[in-house]
Simulated assay, not measured.
Amino acid sequence: MPNSMSLSRPKRKSPLSFPKPKSFPTTSWKCYQKRQRLKRLNSGMKRARSGTEEISEEQEEIKEKQTQLSNRFQAIGKQCEQLRKETAVIVQQSARTQNRLALMFQILKARENHEFDKAAMLTAALREAIAREEQEMNASEK
């Protein structure tokens, strides 16, 4: 019997291994690999471009919203300042009214007690206070 080993098939490394595929000539294989790399690179670049475009659009929207908010805050600030001024005017008017009422009450008390000199003096003070207030209001309107 001839050598039985030599007639048998060559042993494979693993039972599932397949024979080696035919190889391309080296230059065409390198060109193929280069084309595949360029395809992957181009598709990645397209994804990156679309991502950057989306980001830039979002940034523009954010800038517009920030501008709108800034304008709103400025308008609110102006309204607050206006309200402060109006509140100050109301407080001044209230204080003046209280002073006039206090003078009027004192005038009434003096007349009740038959202190006509004191009532005349308080009446003059009330007239002066009213005149002063009218002058201040005329000056502030100009």
Results as ranks from 00 to 15, higher is better:
residue 13 K to W: 03
residue 52 T to C: 01
residue 142 K to M: 13
residue 73 F to P: 04
residue 119 A to H: 04
residue 101 L to P: 00
residue 125 A to R: 04
residue 39 K to T: 14
residue 136 E to F: 01
residue 71 N to H: 05
residue 45 M to C: 15
residue 59 Q to H: 08
residue 121 M to F: 01
residue 117 D to E: 14
residue 116 F to D: 15
residue 137 M to Y: 07
residue 67 T to A: 05
residue 140 S to A: 09
residue 45 M to Q: 14
residue 113 N to G: 14
residue 48 A to I: 04
residue 138 N to C: 03
residue 74 Q to E: 12
residue 128 E to T: 01
residue 44 G to K: 15
residue 10 P to N: 03
residue 9 R to E: 02
residue 55 I to D: 13
residue 123 T to I: 03
residue 122 L to P: 03
residue 132 R to L: 15
residue 123 T to D: 09
residue 34 K to E: 06
residue 24 F to C: 13
residue 58 E to N: 05
residue 80 C to V: 13
residue 14 S to F: 15
residue 133 E to Y: 02
residue 103 L to R: 08
residue 56 S to C: 03
residue 76 I to L: 09
residue 107 I to H: 06
residue 53 E to T: 10
residue 64 E to W: 05
residue 67 T to M: 01
residue 27 T to L: 01
residue 122 L to M: 07
residue 41 L to G: 07
residue 101 L to W: 01
residue 52 T to R: 02
residue 135 Q to T: 10
residue 86 E to D: 14
residue 30 K to G: 06
residue 7 L to E: 10
residue 45 M to T: 06
residue 71 N to I: 04
residue 127 R to I: 04
residue 63 K to S: 10
residue 110 A to E: 01
residue 100 R to L: 12
residue 4 S to T: 06
residue 16 L to G: 10
residue 40 R to W: 03
residue 45 M to N: 08
residue 128 E to L: 11
residue 75 A to G: 12
residue 141 E to C: 08
residue 98 Q to N: 12
residue 82 Q to L: 12
residue 21 P to D: 11
residue 4 S to I: 06
residue 128 E to R: 03
residue 59 Q to P: 00
residue 134 E to A: 10
residue 134 E to G: 10
residue 34 K to G: 11
residue 85 K to C: 14
residue 55 I to E: 13
residue 57 E to H: 04
residue 131 A to Y: 01
residue 108 L to N: 08
residue 104 M to Y: 04
residue 110 A to D: 05
residue 9 R to V: 00
residue 98 Q to A: 08
residue 116 F to K: 08
residue 104 M to T: 12
residue 50 S to L: 05
residue 66 Q to M: 07
residue 17 S to H: 03
residue 45 M to S: 08
residue 23 S to E: 13
residue 88 A to P: 05
residue 75 A to I: 05
residue 37 R to Q: 02
residue 95 A to P: 04
residue 129 A to C: 13
residue 123 T to H: 07
residue 101 L to R: 06
residue 98 Q to W: 02
residue 123 T to R: 11
residue 38 L to I: 02
residue 138 N to Q: 12
residue 124 A to P: 04
residue 48 A to R: 12
residue 136 E to R: 06
residue 76 I to G: 10
residue 125 A to V: 00
residue 43 S to V: 04
residue 16 L to P: 14
residue 1 M to I: 02
residue 88 A to R: 06
residue 93 Q to L: 08
residue 78 K to G: 11
residue 91 V to M: 00
residue 103 L to G: 07
residue 46 K to M: 10
residue 8 S to M: 13
residue 67 T to V: 02
residue 119 A to S: 02
residue 53 E to Y: 08
residue 133 E to A: 09
residue 28 S to Y: 07
residue 10 P to R: 03
residue 33 Q to M: 15
residue 6 S to A: 03
residue 97 T to N: 05
residue 80 C to P: 09
residue 62 I to Y: 00
residue 129 A to H: 01
residue 83 L to Y: 13
residue 4 S to G: 13
residue 63 K to H: 07
residue 56 S to Y: 00
residue 89 V to S: 06
residue 132 R to K: 15
residue 45 M to V: 10
residue 65 K to N: 11
residue 3 N to V: 00
residue 13 K to N: 12
residue 3 N to E: 15
residue 83 L to A: 15
residue 75 A to V: 12
residue 85 K to Q: 13
residue 113 N to I: 04
residue 29 W to R: 11
residue 64 E to I: 09
residue 90 I to C: 04
residue 6 S to V: 05
residue 129 A to Q: 04
residue 17 S to D: 10
residue 56 S to G: 04
residue 123 T to N: 13
residue 35 R to E: 14
residue 43 S to T: 00
residue 22 K to A: 07
residue 89 V to T: 15
residue 16 L to D: 12
